[in-house]
Design a protein around this nucleic acid. Sequence first.
DNA 1: ATAGGACAGTTTAATATTAAACGAATTAAT
DNA 2: ATTAATTCGTTTAATATTAAACTGTCCTAT
Lengths: 154, 154
Amino acid sequence: MDKKSIKGLGFKSRAVTSFLQYMWAYETIKARIFSMLNKYGLTASQFGVLDALFHLGSRSQRDLGTHILKSGGNITMVIDNLEKAGLVRRERSVEDRRFIYVHLTDKGKKLFVEILPLHLKAVEDEMSALTSREMEELGRLCVKLGSKKGGDRK
Amino acid sequence: MDKKSIKGLGFKSRAVTSFLQYMWAYETIKARIFSMLNKYGLTASQFGVLDALFHLGSRSQRDLGTHILKSGGNITMVIDNLEKAGLVRRERSVEDRRFIYVHLTDKGKKLFVEILPLHLKAVEDEMSALTSREMEELGRLCVKLGSKKGGDRK
DNA sequence: ATAGGACAGTTTAATATTAAACGAATTAAT
DNA sequence: ATTAATTCGTTTAATATTAAACTGTCCTAT
């Protein structure tokens, strides 16, 4: 029985096993961490946008999309909903009319400042399963993983 | 300046930094890995269901939902779409009529067997950024993270 | 100057996703 | 046995998400 047929029948390589553990853990703790935000009426993407605006300042929708790894069409809707809730404000750029800059409103800033500590607490609670040394190692491995450049496929 | 105000202004603890690296890497490589499946018309959830049915055998919708960490309402739609595509088949249980068992059709089995090696190859390509020892360590850390039980919040 | 291309944002169509309300079937409690 | 609680699946309403087609806007090469 060659390797190919073994795989098809359920054999898992070291790489695949690790990936499954990685994926499962992420989905699990992501659900736990963001359920808190949901209680404040914010989705993960909405929180990501508020966080970027708060820490980086006003940004174009394109920048925001790149930052939270979401498509342009999606950003339109996320900003729509944040705008409906009065948390952000759109402003068409005068230098280059293609760009729309998104600004935090006072209401948005107030909500974010209220929620951020709770979010950080939730993250720290989840991560506290690891020692500080392990957190560092996890971060290092993930950076190495995510930074992998394409093009090494034969 | 106390710790709370430092945090609010951008200070990131070791736990938060590691979590952000973890989240960013996951979203990045997940998009790369599942873009291949999308070309075959399968979403990540649909593939997860086919995988469970193939490796574990026929299951109830509830079991499938638990397995891929998705809500009941979602499973209804995912199975709907797989059924429309002729890849799975529903069967109401006769012992307990609340349960609906989902079965792979021949067409579904054929497609899955065709795609699985490509998916495994994509996973291994991504994970190849790490050494075997690092993969093992990553898996260990993730299991520790995800297994954390609630209830240690004061 | 203008035609073509590049780029920002929107719209559309399809699927995903959840929470909550709901209906049907089963089990537990009295 | 009848009631109450639980469990499974569906439906609904809302947002997320993407790819692809589309509209404006800006830039560039001729």
